[in-house]
Design a binder for these strands. Structure first.
Length: 653
DNA sequence: AGCACGCCGACT
DNA sequence: GTCGGCGTGCTC
């Protein structure tokens, strides 16, 4: 019996006579330690456990068994991510500890269906929809990139594929990167299919979660829209997976089990022999490499739907047009905003930095406020002024006196966050109605909906926000987007910095001019000749991606080589140092594999734990997992040292 | 992951 | 002489 715990392997139980018909996949209730747990029959016992220790299975639950593809998927993900299978099963059971089912569940309600007529599609959309529908109808494994510029109507196209899947009587799953996206898109699904899809993400209530889980497990819930964790649910009859905004790094989970939702979705498709659709306006290099090699198909939507044209992108060279002192909006951007407001248009200012200022220092002694638990500056936030850490939950009011020199009134806020940009905008445009959109201002999806509704209703002239505002929303009267610091994401030497910056800025730019008026986008940059800025300015996505791919290929970096990261952490820096050295000495010499490190992780202290990391670089076809298993298996780790394995890492923190 | 056990330092 | 820190090992 596999239990939803991060423990190696399954546990053996006695099978009492009344349960002699138990088979793999059956949900069972078993005693474990002093508790009773819900687990899944995984197979026959190996028989190597002391018979005296064996306890009997208590009961079989009246839920349809976990289908074989779902079980194979669980084992596959465990092996790939090098996590215990029980940790994957825990996600399949909905993540939370729960009481076992006692009663046969009532069928989850399937509301009366009154789907709206399918929308009228452009010829390009119709062709793409037909191709996808055909794949769904015939079934079998396939991966298709739906490659369409922002505003080209990708959602309508894949909704046709969903309709075909539901018509076959199978379940469809749509994976989305951000919860914030769901409110608007959910209404569209509801209107299109006449019934609200089941929502799955970390914020849904326990009762909804339980209801959705049962509907998914029994097969009565036809459509699920969720975050990456929805991929592991026990679908009774899955027939299609859509991964929308497949390039999004939000699909990468980086705690507990480290996995990429998009990659796991493709694996699920293979195992279940079902089509997978990856949708994006700015596909990842990984996906494009798979298209090039012929492993994935591609469908292209080259035009904006309904005659809207792509926005006009202008670079503002901050050297040539510097903002005033203690200001961050350059004269050309200010005049563009002035003109936009005069023409009754809406504008958006994008800065991917929460709070008021990223750094606060004391003018008297130079003291900089740093988090006591993390190697990071404390970020100033307004309201009553506070200093917050964005990596842990540390938060304190700004003190009166400098903690280092006791000076009073000498604090100086360095640099801008969105709150400070909103302050500057308020100063410059006192009549404009300005709102800030960040994870600090929208606590839940209801708050997000309210803000989006206010924007749609024209009650806001200027929205200032972080990337939470960059995704998916469709504001017809939004004609100007200003990017305050286009260079921000390029710093840090991250492997995917350029790719990610391009994708993010392209997404932000795509918010503008989505109906009749042509949108304008201004990018403030200190590096106007940088390939990312040039590609955005002339709209040469493919040229940029080709250049980026050529560079990755040259250095054998993903997707042309493989990476894995080992992160060691401990509250005790000395112990961590020793373990790192021991591990470095134990690296097995292996052809086509290089181990770099140990080095301090960029966040060398995070939530009170010191962190060191190794990076493993290998050829495309190398079995990284076997190597890591052998290597880590040869070293004994003290209990205080946590070892995290990140296959195909995205973040280099 | 939880939980129990067990061994050492700090108090009533 | 007891409380409680967390290092170690176990759960079928």
């Amino acid at each position: 019996v596999l239990l939803p715990l991060p423990l190696t392997g399954a546990f053996d139980y006695l099978c009492p006579a009344p349960l002699s018909d138990l088979a793999p996949g059956d949900f069972v209730e078993v005693p474990f330690g002093r508790k009773t747990l819900t687990g899944v029959v995984w197979g026959h016992a190996r028989g190597d456990v002391d018979p005296a220790k064996l306890k009997p299975i208590l009961a079989k639950l009246e839920i349809p068994p976990l289908p074989a593809p779902q079980r194979r998927f669980t084992d596959w993900v465990a092996a790939y991510t090098m996590s215990p299978p029980g940790a994957i099963l825990k996600m399949a059971l909905g993540g939370q500890a729960w009481k076992p089912f006692k009663r046969k569940p009532k069928g989850a309600g399937t509301p009366a269906s009154n789907p709206a007529a399918p929308p009228t599609l452009s010829p390009e959309q119709a062709a793409a929809a037909a191709a996808l529908t055909q794949k769904v109808t015939q079934g079998g494994a396939s991966v298709t990139l739906l490659d369409g510029v922002t505003g080209s109507g990708k959602t309508e196209v894949y909704c046709e594929a969903i309709a075909a899947c539901l018509a076959k009587g199978q379940q469809a799953l749509v994976l989305l990167p951000e919860i914030a996206l769901t409110t608007q898109i959910l209404d569209r699904f509801t209107a299109r299919f006449g019934t609200a899809p089941a929502l799955w993400h970390s914020d849904v209530s326990d009762s909804t979660r339980r209801h959705s889980w049962l509907g998914i497990a029994t097969g009565t819930t036809p459509l699920v829209v969720g975050a990456r964790s929805a991929l592991f649910l026990p679908y009774q009859n899955l027939g299609l997976i859509i991964v929308d905004e497949e390039h999004e790094s939000a699909f990468k989970q980086e705690d507990g089990v480290f996995y990429h939702g998009r990659d796991m979705a493709v694996a699920r498709g293979h195992i279940g022999q079902i089509p997978v659709v990856l949708a994006s306006a700015t596909p990842s290099l990984e996906t494009l490499a798979n298209v090039e090699s012929g492993r994935y198909d591609r469908l292209v939507l080259p035009q904006r739907h309904g005659g809207a044209v792509l926005p006009d992108v202008t670079l503002i060279d901050l050297c040539a047009h510097p903002p005033e002192r203690q200001s961050w909006l350059s004269p050309p951007l200010v005049s563009a905003l002035t003109q936009t407001f005069a023409d009754q248009g809406q504008a958006m200012l994008f800065l991917n930095r929460r709070g008021y200022a990223p750094l606060t220092l004391c003018r008297a002694c130079g003291h900089r406020f740093q988090c006591p638990n993390c190697s990071a500056w404390l970020v100033a936030h307004q309201g009553p002024p506070r200093l917050k850490c964005h990596h842990c939950d540390y938060s304190n009011p700004l003190p009166k006196h400098c903690p280092a020199c006791q000076a009073e009134g000498q604090f100086f806020a360095c640099g801008p966050g969105v709150e400070r940009i909103a302050e500057e905008a308020t100063r410059r445009f006192p009549n404009a109605r300005i709102a800030v959109m960040t994870s600090d201002t929208i606590e839940d999806s209801a708050a997000a909906s309210r803000l989006i509704a206010a924007m749609e209703a024209g009650e806001i002239d200027l929205l200032v926000g972080t990337q939470i505002m960059a995704k998916g929303h469709n504001f017809p009267n939004l004609v100007l987007v200003g990017v305050v610091d286009a260079d921000l994401g390029l710093a840090g030497g991250d492997l995917r910095a350029a790719e990610r910056t391009f994708q993010l800025l392209q997404q932000v730019a795509g918010r503008s001019g989505r109906s009749t008026r042509r949108g304008r986008v201004f990018l403030q940059t200190l590096q106007p000749t940088h390939p990312v800025m040039q590609a955005l300015a002339i709209g040469d996505r493919d040229g940029f991606l080709r250049a980026e791919a050529a560079e990755r290929r040259l250095y054998a970096m993903p997707p042309f080589g493989r990476l894995a990261a080992i992160i060691l952490s401990s509250p005790d820096a000395a112990i961590l140092g020793h373990v790192g050295e021991a591990l470095a000495k134990a690296v097995p010499a292996t052809p086509d594999i290089r181990v770099l490190g140990p080095a301090d992780a960029p966040l060398a202290l995070l939530r009170g734990r010191h962190r060191r990391r190794f990076l493993i670089k290998a050829g495309k076809t190398v079995r990284l997992q076997n190597f890591i298993q052998t290597w880590l298996g040869s070293v004994r780790f003290p209990r205080s040292v946590r070892v995290q394995i990140d296959i195909d890492p995205y973040s280099f923190f």
